[in-house]
């Protein structure tokens, strides 16, 4: 399951972070690490971007970017 496919209020654990070099590294640096648990807070009114809670802080990212993050059930 991809993060971009998750629904509002769903919870999961990051299985893999993909994407191109710099972008992937940035996600890692922001704390999107394998094994981190993540909660989908909400989608913006226009369905993009989405807001997730990670380590107690709120981070938003675009749906196309969330499609690089593979999730598994909590």
């Amino acid at each position: 399951m991809l993060l971009s496919e998750m629904k509002e209020g769903q919870e999961g654990v990051i299985a893999k972070v993909g994407g191109a070099g710099a972008f992937r590294r940035r996600l890692l640096e922001m704390g999107f690490l394998k094994g981190a648990s993540l909660f989908v807070e909400k989608y913006a009114p226009l369905k993009d971007p989405l807001e997730v809670t990670l380590n107690g802080c709120h981070v938003s990212l675009r749906v196309e970017e969330a499609a690089h993050i593979v999730m598994e059930d909590a």
Binding site: F23, M30, E51, C57, H58, V59, S60, L61, E65
Partner: peptide, 12 residues
């Protein structure tokens, strides 16, 4: 060039 990802913190 490198497209800036939107990954952005929503601070308290």
């Amino acid at each position: 060039g490198s497209v800036a990802p939107f990954v952005m913190e929503l601070p308290p």
